[in-house]
Design a protein around this nucleic acid. Sequence first.
DNA 1: ATGAAAGCGCTAACAT
DNA 2: ATGTTAGCGCTTTCAT
Lengths: 369, 369
Amino acid sequence: MTTQSDDTQPSAPRTSPPGPGSAALGRPTLQQVAALAGVSRATASRVVNGGAGVRLHVQAKVRKAVEELGYVPNPAARTLMTRRHDAVAVVVAEPESRVFSDPFFAQQLRGIGRELSAAAVQLVLLLVTDAGDYAQVGRYLAAGHVDGALIFSLHRDNPLPVMVDRLGLPVVYGGRPEWGEPGSIPLYVDTDNRGGARAAAEHLVARGRRRIAVITGPLDQTSSVDRLDGFRDVFPNFPDSDPDLLVEGDFTAPGGRRAMERLLDRSPDLDAVFACSDLMAAGALAVLAERGLRVPEDVAVVGYDDSDTAAQWASPPLTTVRQDIEEMGRLMARLLLNRLQLEFDGRPDEAAALTSVVTPAELIVRRSS
Amino acid sequence: MTTQSDDTQPSAPRTSPPGPGSAALGRPTLQQVAALAGVSRATASRVVNGGAGVRLHVQAKVRKAVEELGYVPNPAARTLMTRRHDAVAVVVAEPESRVFSDPFFAQQLRGIGRELSAAAVQLVLLLVTDAGDYAQVGRYLAAGHVDGALIFSLHRDNPLPVMVDRLGLPVVYGGRPEWGEPGSIPLYVDTDNRGGARAAAEHLVARGRRRIAVITGPLDQTSSVDRLDGFRDVFPNFPDSDPDLLVEGDFTAPGGRRAMERLLDRSPDLDAVFACSDLMAAGALAVLAERGLRVPEDVAVVGYDDSDTAAQWASPPLTTVRQDIEEMGRLMARLLLNRLQLEFDGRPDEAAALTSVVTPAELIVRRSS
DNA sequence: ATGAAAGCGCTAACAT
DNA sequence: ATGTTAGCGCTTTCAT
């Protein structure tokens, strides 16, 4: 079998009585499986990992032993050898504690979860609540707990892209990032924010609206800027033509309220509002109702996201822009998994050739405009 | 220093040229730190882990080496030794893909995240989407990737409690579970569903309502049953007195719609509705509006959860029952961390003495009743 | 096709 | 206070 002083019979200087390969307490090891099956540890390992190059007859013996002992490989030991974790981090920066009440993120997370779980890769959620958490997340990623990361909803000054860039950790972003370390090209999955916003603007024009206000998202995020740019594709002089028709919001419902109030105070004659999220549109709707303005007769409203709670349950239901959010999550995960696979297989060239994805946006017309 | 054939100078039969403790490629190891600092691996390890019993002077040397090399401990190797992971799983069973659109869960997750991150413990999110995922989650937990688990929103037939019970994995449940393995006492954090529902019922009575309908949650969850029981504390004969006033819902807005339609068809004379979630109340509100019934004049409505989107933005704003959801999340995490600490410190008796928590519920009166 | 041996990077007795 | 030594459980050459 094995040599004497091998770890089949370690000189047991350990604390507790439980002998070496004995049935003792604690989980069974590969060694015990091998012993029971009457093969070497190497062979047992081969079987556990697929069984390539092991006679079926021997495989059967090993599997029986595995079954009998209830053997489950120790992931830490395996990682130590293989340098793989089969886990990726999902980093969510939610400084304004907003991200999470946003159904957007929940759906994307579900898409990610589906894709990862199909590949038997675990999802480690890293929530960044306050500024101090960045250091902690940085340490976590630096320690090499995960094979890669998915990172979300970044504002311009976020330190994460630079961090992961320095670590050389494979990353896919949710939404086009402002830019990481100069020289590196980030991989991301984004939606056609500009096209979606353009469609919204065109729709309002087609409905005969002329004094259209815009409630943007935070303008230090690319998605907000892109949506504004899409609107400006139709109204190139906006907002210079009338600065009072632009208010920067924050993607939340209360933010939408405040923005709408400001807009009406400044421009009582507006005949339409394009709110860059459904939540903000919902807030705007509430203000319009309070002020006795009818939607869409007096003021047409268009949202963004097609969130089922905000858009579909609003009264009136919102005209909005839909994106396949769950699919975006799936794509992010798939992109990262592909990259990891290629790098692990030693094809860095092919990995470098992977390319970002922009998914389509579609206007959904409902009663609000 | 060290002996010759120690791993300072392994006979390097490895694939790549990079020598032993050499500066080569790959992360620096503790060995390299020790070498650079001119101490043994053991001492370096002590310093990295707090430095107890090491002269400050030596500590400084080691820390300098750590700094210089950019050393970060390898967590897999550490886990292999310590049997700790400093990670806990959060298992979310969302068969009806509902849990996630529910703000309830998001808040709880945030509370958990806060507490865990304060203890530098990682959160591994396990999403159970379809039935097949249970096996996968089971394998994951069995493999021992995490020190413990937090488990949510269980329906009666969920296989998880039995699974983790068999594994002996420390668990804290979100919401009182139906029961795990007979004989084991589950640890959980719940809210006073019964008290909250009772308060809602009492409020409606005080408002002079007599024909009160109830839209429950899924009755295979303890929270739903408890809320119904709370209502029955005030109306002991309900629903036998009038079975048409009870409909089982599913906690969703569309579910609330359907339930309300059924109630009005069967009992057009009802004068109040207690919906066991704000989302269902929102659905009910929509139906009442469509049928031209005024709230609260014709029908008073009370929800549950005090969800900011559903309750506070509803029109009229909902009277509802509030719970400190984020705090519940924090409590779950803290309970689990305490238990892990005690067990690790070898005080199973104290660990066994830990006890479940039930947090208060508070009625918030708004315009809907 | 299988086994022997080496060692991933770390911690923890034990000895000094 | 520090070093020595013995592994944690696994994968992977290399030899047979």
